[in-house]
Measured scan of single mutants.
Amino acid sequence: IRCIGVSNRDFVEGMSGGTWVDVVLEHGGCVTVMAQDKPTVDIELVTTTVSNMAEVRSYCYEASISDMASDSRCPTQGEAYLDKQSDTQYVCKRTLVDRGWGNGCGLFGKGSLVTCAKFTCSKKMTGKSIQPENLEYRIMLSVHGSQHSGMIVNDTGYETDENRAKVEVTPNSPRAEATLGGFGSLGLDCEPRTGLDFSDLYYLTMNNKHWLVHKEWFHDIPLPWHAGADTGTPHWNNKEALVEFKDAHAKRQTVVVLGSQEGAVHTALAGALEAEMDGAKGKLFSGHLKCRLKMDKLRLKGVSYSLCTAAFTFTKVPAETLHGTVTVEVQYAGTDGPCKIPVQMAVDMQTLTPVGRLITANPVITESTENSKMMLELDPPFGDSYIVIGVGDKKITHHWHRSGSTIGKAFEATVRGAKRMAVLGDTAWDFGSVGGVFNSLGKGIHQIFGAAFKSLFGGMSWFSQILIGTLLVWLGLNTKNGSISLTCLALGGVMIFLSTAVSA
C-alpha cells in the first residue's frame, strides 16, 4: 500500500470489461488503480535517471590570480610587451599612462603600459546536455494484498515479495511487465516523455548541487567559461569578468580578483528545477510519464477462499488518510488461513446495510499462523458509518465519521480527471477507425466523469442509474429551450454510458 502517505494521489477506475487503462505517473504523486474483478494496485514513479550526459560548457565562479607582471614604455618608444601576453592562462590589459620627467621619461606624453596576471579557477559549475534516449524511469508497484503497516513504502525485498514489484522503462524499451506472483502480471506500455523539453534544458552542477536550467539563461551567464570537458589546462574565455584592473600608474597597475560568485548564482537559480546525482547518473524529480496498463493477466487472489471465522482485533486505531479513506490494521487469532476477511461498512448496526467501498479488493489472510496481521483500506461514505470486521458474535466494529460532501468530492474528481486527460493529450485517442474513435470517446468520458459518477451514484443499482439517464434524455427531447435540451441530452447520455461502463 504505497499511496496512503502521498498527498498527491489519483484514483483511476477501469471500465467494466476493459483490459487496459491509461494513467499519468508523476514525481511526488501516486496512482491507485481499481477495476472490477482485479486486485487494487498502487503505482508510483520513484526516480527518473539520466546517463551519458555530455559537458557543454563550464563557468568559473571563484578564481585566484598570481605571478603579476607589468612592462611600460616612454612616449615614442613603441608598445610595451610581455611574453605572458601569448599565454592563455594569463589575463592581460594594455593601456596608456601619462609619462614625463617625473617618472623617468625625457618627453612628456602618453606611454604604453601592459599588465598580466595568471588566472586560476578555484571553483566552477558545469552544464551538461541531456539526450531523451538516455532517460530511465523506475516504477514501483504494490498490490493491496496481505501486507501490514511495516511494509508500507518499503522498497527492500521486492524481489521475493509477490505484493510488490519494480520495473524500469526507457525510450528504447518502453514496454515492461511486472510479475506479482499469485496476482498474475501487469503489463506497462509507457510513452517516455517527461513533459520537459530537454532540447531547451541543461543539467547544471555547482558545488555538489544540481538544477535543470534553460539553455539561453545558461549561455548568457557573465562569467569566465570554457567549452567542452575539462582537459586539465582549460582555456578560459572572458577571464576579465572576475578580474579587475585598478587605476594605472606610470610603471605598474594593481590587479585584484573578485570574490566568489556562488551567492549571486544561487539567487539567479531561484525557482529552477532541482535535481540530484546518483553516482555518474543524474536524478530528476520533475515531469511525468504516461503509461497504458494492460490488466488482462491480472487476477484476484483468494476468490475461492472461505470466510475467516475466528476473532479479529484492531492492532491500531483506524486512521484517516490524506485522501479521506480509512486504513485499518487487524490481527487474526485463527489458524484456518488462508481465508477471506469479512469486512464491510454499514450505516447502522441493526440492518448492516453496506455503504462505501473497499479500496483493498478481496482482502485475505494468507498465513495459517496465529496472530497474522493484515492492513486494508476503505472508502467510507460522508457522515457517520460503522466499520464491521468478522462474522457472528466475534465481529468487531468501529464508529467512523467522514466530513465533507459527495458533491465536493465529485467536483474534485472531475477536475482531476480533466487534468489527466489534458496530460494524456492525443495519445488517449485513436482515429484509425470508426470503432477506435468511439472507443476513445468512451475512454475520455470515463477518465473525466467516472470518479464523479461513482461518488454521486455508486450506491444505486445499474438499472436505477439507466432509468435516471433515460429520464434526462426524455426531458431533453421534450424541452423547447435549446440549451436546457442539449444539457439534459448530454447528461442523460453520459449517465447511461457510465452506468453500463463503470464497474460497481
Rank of each mutant, 00 (worst) to 15 (best):
R2A: 03
G5D: 08
R9K: 11
V12H: 05
V12A: 12
E13Y: 09
T19Y: 07
D22W: 08
V24L: 08
G28Y: 02
G29T: 15
C30W: 07
C30V: 03
T32I: 07
A35H: 02
Q36H: 15
P39W: 11
V46K: 10
T47F: 00
V50Y: 03
S51C: 09
M53W: 04
A54Q: 09
A54Y: 06
V56Q: 04
V56A: 12
S58C: 01
Y59G: 02
Y61N: 10
S64A: 13
D67F: 05
A69C: 14
A69K: 02
A69S: 10
S72N: 13
R73T: 08
E79Q: 09
A80H: 08
Y81V: 11
D83C: 00
T88V: 02
K93W: 12
T95Q: 12
L96E: 08
G100Q: 08
G100C: 05
G104Y: 06
L107R: 07
F108G: 03
G109P: 02
K110F: 06
G111T: 02
L113E: 02
L113S: 05
A117D: 02
K118G: 01
F119D: 08
T120G: 15
M125G: 02
G127A: 14
I130T: 08
I130N: 07
P132A: 14
N134R: 04
N134V: 05
Y137D: 08
R138T: 08
M140T: 08
S142V: 01
V143Y: 09
H144T: 02
Q147R: 14
H148E: 15
S149A: 03
I152A: 15
N154M: 09
D155H: 15
Y158H: 10
T160R: 03
A165H: 10
N172Y: 15
P174S: 10
R175E: 11
R175F: 09
L180T: 04
G181L: 08
F183M: 12
G184N: 08
G184P: 05
L186G: 02
L186D: 04
G187A: 09
L196V: 15
S199A: 15
S199E: 15
L201G: 00
Y203T: 10
L204Y: 10
T205W: 05
N207G: 14
N208F: 00
K209A: 04
K209Y: 06
W211Y: 13
L212F: 05
L212E: 08
L212Y: 06
K215Q: 15
E216Q: 08
E216N: 07
I221T: 13
I221Q: 07
I221V: 14
H226P: 00
A227P: 14
A229I: 13
A229M: 08
D230C: 00
T233H: 13
T233G: 14
N237L: 01
K239T: 06
E240G: 15
A241Q: 03
V243M: 11
F245W: 09
F245G: 01
T254Q: 13
T254W: 06
V256N: 00
L258R: 09
E262Q: 08
E262G: 10
H266G: 13
G271S: 09
G271K: 10
A275T: 15
E276Y: 15
D278F: 14
A280E: 02
A280S: 14
K281Y: 00
K283M: 15
L284D: 03
F285I: 09
C291H: 04
L298Q: 02
L300H: 06
L300E: 04
K301T: 04
Y305R: 00
Y305W: 06
S306G: 15
C308Y: 09
A311I: 06
T313R: 05
F314W: 14
F314S: 08
K316R: 14
V317W: 02
P318N: 08
P318A: 03
T321N: 07
H323D: 09
G324K: 09
V330Y: 09
V330N: 08
V330R: 02
Q331H: 04
Q331I: 14
D336P: 13
D336N: 13
G337E: 08
P338C: 06
C339H: 07
I341P: 07
P342Q: 13
Q344C: 09
M345F: 14
A346H: 12
Q350W: 00
Q350A: 07
L352H: 15
T353R: 14
G356V: 02
I359L: 03
I359V: 14
I359A: 10
N362M: 12
I365D: 04
E367C: 12
E377H: 05
E377I: 04
L378D: 06
D379V: 08
P380L: 10
P381Q: 02
P381G: 01
F382P: 06
G383L: 01
Y386A: 06
I387Q: 05
I387S: 08
V388Y: 02
I389N: 06
K394A: 10
H401T: 02
H401A: 09
H401Y: 13
G404M: 09
T406K: 08
I407Q: 04
G408L: 05
F411E: 09
E412M: 12
T414G: 01
R416Q: 04
G417T: 09
R420F: 09
A422Y: 07
V423E: 02
G425C: 07
D426N: 15
T427C: 09
F431I: 14
S433D: 05
G435I: 01
F438C: 12
S440I: 05
S440P: 10
H446C: 04
H446S: 02
A451S: 14
A451V: 15
A452F: 11
K454D: 11
S455W: 13
G458A: 10
I466C: 14
I468F: 08
T470D: 07
L471S: 12
W474Q: 09
G476A: 14
G476N: 10
L477T: 13
K480W: 11
N481V: 09
G482Q: 09
S483L: 05
L486V: 15
C488Q: 10
G492T: 01
V494Q: 12
M495G: 04
M495L: 14
I496R: 02
A501R: 01
